[in-house]
């Protein structure tokens, strides 16, 4: 059994438990174990873009230091935002030792961060460590006939310095969908922002964005969309359900890990969504038992 240190992040540990549940089960089937850090804190979610704001790098550094103290140098994330913030903070401090020294001076009697712990997104682990062929051998229930629009959002592929795929033409989600037997429906909107945290300040902007995203997916004939971020998922599910009242296509969204679980014959944990994906899955011959 391979193992990797794992950082849930606040969203995954709270309302995105279905993502963790299915990721853990899928990795288990692929002979990988996620070992949650014994202590962790919020990564800060939005990477600080100011050059003088070292305080906002303390959170990520603290998380990375926990990994360093376990004598490991990689940290698995499921959430795209955590992935981005952890990787960017690590780069920001590692490329200028003076910044790192100032952060360590602030941390005082706590262990210094020495640099070099890399956040790894689950999509990278699947593509680069596990490999698509290993995934394919575990597929027991191919998602034949299911049309899925991948939604990448922003932080998996932007900025370029930490992009895990091509910023304009990513393919990792499409590739995984094909391995699972589904038919990818790529749209131009798959890399366009859903409105992100503005869901807390300006939900109408988010509703407009998710309307555009779901319209593009529906135009391509998609049955549902997949996400890799609890915030994108919230916007494409809860906010889209609101937007659907005024005409947006009521297209369900699930985490890509949930579709993987379904294809591997594992519990897809599909009971948290506002827009229930089970009817469209059932219509494609992929009925999921509903627990009473």
């Amino acid at each position: 059994m391979n193992s990797i240190a794992y950082y849930p992040g606040c969203g995954v540990a709270d309302q995105a438990r279905s993502m963790e549940h299915t990721a853990r089960a899928v990795l288990q089937a692929l002979d990988w174990e996620m070992q949650e850090l014994p202590r962790w804190n919020c990564c800060g979610t939005v990477y600080s873009l100011a050059s003088d704001d070292l305080m906002r790098h303390i959170g990520p550094v603290r998380v990375l230091t926990h990994v360093q103290e376990l004598k490991l140098d990689r940290l698995l994330t499921l959430c795209s935002m955590c992935y981005s913030t952890l990787r960017r903070s690590e780069r920001f401090l590692n490329e200028d030792r003076e910044r790192l020294e100032r952060v360590n001076a602030f941390l005082d009697d706590e262990p210094d961060y020495r640099g070099g712990v890399r956040a790894v997104h689950l999509l990278e682990l699947l593509r680069d460590d596990i490999g698509y062929s290993a995934l394919e051998t575990r597929v027991t229930r191919p998602l034949e006939g299911l049309k899925v629009a991948p939604y990448y959002g922003c932080t998996l592929t932007r900025p370029r310095s930490v992009a895990l795929d091509d910023p304009e033409h990513p393919s990792v989600l499409e590739d995984i969908l094909e391995v699972l037997g589904a038919e990818p429906v790529p749209t131009a909107q798959r890399v366009e922002c859903c409105g992100s945290y503005m869901t807390a300040s300006d939900p109408s902007v988010v509703r407009r964005r998710v309307t555009a995203i779901s319209e593009a997916a529906a135009a391509g004939g998609a049955d549902l969309m997949i996400t890799s971020c609890p915030l994108c998922q919230y916007n494409l599910d809860a906010r889209l359900a609101e937007a659907a009242r005024t005409g947006a296509p009521r297209l369900p969204s699930v985490y890509f890990t949930q579709l993987m679980a379904l294809a591997l014959g594992l519990d897809p944990a599909l009971d948290e969504q506002v827009i229930d994906p089970r009817p469209v899955l059932a219509a494609r011959g992929l009925a999921v038992e509903v627990e009473a």
Binding site: C10, G11, M198, T199, C229
Partner: peptide, 15 residues
Amino acid sequence: TMGLPQIALVGISRK
């Protein structure tokens, strides 16, 4: 609003 993802609350707070 109950149930907003933490990511959103942390993000907007930082902004």
